[in-house]
Structures are given as structure tokens and as C-alpha cells.
């Protein structure tokens, strides 16, 4: 793919900010609107933008299939794993109270961790879904854009 140079430069400049914003949304979810899911989506949008400008192949070079699948799994496992910690502490599943010295901090840690899990899974899943569509060879020739 050979897009305009300006587009590529702008995209390159914009991308770090998008990702930064995503991270902000991820960590700021406790205090304002946002959280893992929104952050994950923004991450994915960032990757999509990257793919639109540099081509999907370039994106799959950075994020090949195994990485994306591992990401999807890692998020779920992080979430469930955080829940399991409570189980092994004699509490119930997803009880974060035991994650830190006092229950309030435990809750904060727990929420942070599970939101991270959500973010990772959503970002990699959305990217994977996009890539799956984008790498499929279009076979349309009956109409024009």
C-alpha cells in the first residue's frame, strides 16, 4: 500500500497519543469514565489506524496471530486468575479483599488487575477480528466504490 506521505506522518504522530490516551483511560477508570473495555477498544482503534495507513501486513508483522491469540487468552486468564487468588486465600472467587493488607486496597488492586485483563483481551480480540476481516481476500468485482 502506498498512501500519501502526509497521511503516514500524521498517523505516526497521532498513534502514540492514541495509545497514550488508551492507557490513560485504562488506568483512570477508577476516577472517571473509562476502564478496561473502553481502553481496549481505543487500543484496537489505534492498531486499526496503523493498519489502514501502513497495511494489514505491516500490522500482522508487529502483532502476528500467536501474539494476538496469546493476548486474548492472557486477559481472560489474568481476570480469572485474580479471582482465583481469593479462592486460595479462603475467600470466594473474585473476592479481592485479600489482595492487599486491608480490604479497601485489596479491592483497588483487584479492580485494577481485572480491568487490565479486560483491556488486554478486548484490545487483542478486536484487533484479531479486524485483521481476520482485513486479510480476507475480497472477491468483489461486480460493483465499484
Amino acid at each position: 500500500m502506498h498512501h500519501h506521505l502526509i497521511l503516514r506522518v500524521v498517523a505516526k504522530l497521532l498513534l502514540p497519543f492514541i495509545l497514550l490516551y488508551a492507557l490513560y483511560v485504562q488506568w483512570h477508570g477508577d476516577y472517571g469514565p473509562g476502564g478496561g473495555f473502553q481502553a481496549g477498544v481505543i487500543f484496537a482503534v489505534g492498531f486499526v489506524l496503523y493498519a489502514l495507513v501502513y497495511g494489514v501486513d505491516e500490522l500482522t508483522r508487529i502483532l502476528p496471530r500467536p501474539v494476538l491469540i496469546t493476548g486474548m487468552i492472557a486477559g481472560v486468564i489474568l481476570y480469572a486468575g485474580t479471582g482465583l487468588v481469593g479462592l486460595f486465600q479462603g475467600l470466594t472467587f473474585l473476592d479481592y479483599n485479600g489482595l492487599a493488607a486491608d480490604s479497601r486496597h485489596g479491592q483497588e488492586w483487584g479492580i485494577l488487575l481485572v480491568e487490565l485483563g479486560v483491556g488486554i483481551t478486548v484490545a487483542s480480540s478486536m484487533t484479531a477480528i479486524f485483521v481476520a476481516f482485513a486479510t480476507r481476500e475480497p472477491d468483489i468485482d461486480d460493483e465499484d466504490w
Binding site: 496469546t70 486474548m72 481472560v76 480469572a80 479471582g83 472467587f93
Partner: peptide, 20 residues
């Protein structure tokens, strides 16, 4: 003590690994 949650969480955790 944890039978009910294990019922669901065991396959839920195991399933992703099938893909790997």
C-alpha cells in the same frame, strides 16, 4: 467449599488453552 464456582471456572480457564 468451592464446587459451584469450579463447575464454571474450570472449563472457562481451560478453554482458551485449547486454542494454543
Amino acid at each position: 467449599q468451592h464446587l459451584p464456582i469450579l463447575q464454571v471456572i474450570v472449563p472457562l480457564i481451560a478453554a482458551p488453552f485449547c486454542a494454543l
